[in-house]
Amino acid sequence: MTTPTRWNPDTVAPPIGKYSHLTSVPEGKQLVFIAGQVGNDTDGVIAESAEEQTVLALRNIERLLASMGATPADLVRLLTFVSGTESIPGFVAGRDRVFAEWFPEGDYPGHSLAVVAALIKPEIHIELEGWAAVDARP
């Protein structure tokens, strides 16, 4: 197996969202931690809506993974910070758009969501961090 294995044992309730309870890292892989990504494009322009910010943040993660020869299938875990409950619907819509492409079989990585009072700038609605299992580097 070259990508993480994900599963949901029947000893706990099923996930309440798009995530897996457990993920294992394959032998020979190393964990890489992706710093918080916000919803900006490659020129640094921040999108207006929480939905578009979510899509852009996930695309930034996708590009960072590609720079290491990895794909979203190599994600072990995501952590999302959403600024205020009013940003949750936009986050969910953006996540669902990208996840439909990334995980068409529903084999989602672990994922936690925290609602916070604010992020670094008032116009930033979401921030996503990631953990990935990638080929070990010498």
Results as ranks from 00 to 15, higher is better:
47 A>L: 04
123 E>G: 05
28 G>K: 09
39 G>K: 01
80 T>E: 05
18 K>Y: 09
74 D>T: 02
44 G>D: 08
111 H>A: 10
83 S>Y: 03
110 G>T: 07
103 F>D: 03
18 K>G: 06
10 D>M: 12
114 A>M: 14
86 E>A: 15
70 A>M: 08
124 I>Y: 10
20 S>F: 05
34 I>K: 03
7 W>A: 13
72 P>A: 01
5 T>E: 13
12 V>H: 06
104 P>I: 05
114 A>Q: 10
78 L>W: 00
6 R>P: 02
94 G>K: 04
35 A>G: 03
69 G>Y: 11
51 E>R: 08
115 V>M: 03
62 E>I: 02
94 G>F: 02
66 A>W: 04
111 H>V: 00
15 P>E: 04
20 S>L: 08
11 T>L: 15
91 F>P: 03
100 A>C: 07
27 E>V: 14
89 P>G: 06
51 E>N: 01
82 V>N: 09
2 T>K: 12
70 A>I: 06
130 G>T: 07
133 A>Y: 02
32 V>S: 11
85 T>Y: 12
133 A>V: 04
57 A>P: 00
135 D>S: 15
113 L>K: 01
121 K>V: 04
96 D>Q: 11
133 A>S: 09
135 D>Q: 14
21 H>V: 07
124 I>S: 09
47 A>P: 00
67 S>M: 09
26 P>Y: 04
116 V>R: 07
123 E>N: 14
23 T>E: 07
67 S>K: 08
121 K>W: 08
3 T>S: 10
62 E>P: 03
75 L>I: 04
30 Q>P: 00
53 Q>K: 06
81 F>Q: 13
57 A>Y: 00
58 L>V: 07
4 P>R: 14
66 A>C: 02
21 H>F: 14
58 L>E: 04
51 E>H: 01
101 E>I: 14
70 A>L: 08
61 I>D: 03
117 A>P: 07
53 Q>S: 08
7 W>R: 14
127 E>P: 02
81 F>Y: 14
91 F>S: 03
7 W>G: 13
74 D>K: 01
19 Y>T: 11
15 P>T: 04
53 Q>D: 03
116 V>K: 04
90 G>L: 02
81 F>N: 11
63 R>F: 02
